[in-house]
């Protein structure tokens, strides 16, 4: 099961990113473990300067933007 972390302290884009990920997971029946990381000390362990950050299986894949749905799906459906 993929572990997905959404890094962000509750900005509008962070909330939207989480919603998009959950919607995709439901639509395509993906088994994901979704975590929201809101603590700055924890967020800053990743090399990001802008939120939201997206971490999949301990790998930072995007920062500072909301990736498109096809792009998200590609990342989320990797085995």
């Amino acid at each position: 099961m993929l572990n997905v972390k959404i890094l962000g302290s509750g900005c509008a884009n962070c909330i939207r990113l989480e919603r998009n990920v959950r919607a995709l997971a439901e639509k395509h029946n993906l088994q994901l473990e979704i975590e929201k990381v809101t603590d700055y000390a924890e967020i800053m362990k990743w090399p990001i300067l802008s939120t939201p950050g997206l971490v999949i299986n301990n790998r930072l894949v995007s920062a500072g933007k909301i990736p498109s749905d096809p792009q998200l799906l590609e990342w989320l459906s990797q085995v």
Binding site: A12, N13, C14, Y40, I43, M44, L49, T51
Partner: peptide, 15 residues
């Protein structure tokens, strides 16, 4: 530079 005030903290720390 694209900037959203919600990213002010990570940006501040990073700088």
């Amino acid at each position: 530079t694209p900037f959203c005030s919600c990213s002010a903290v990570p940006l501040f720390i990073g700088f």
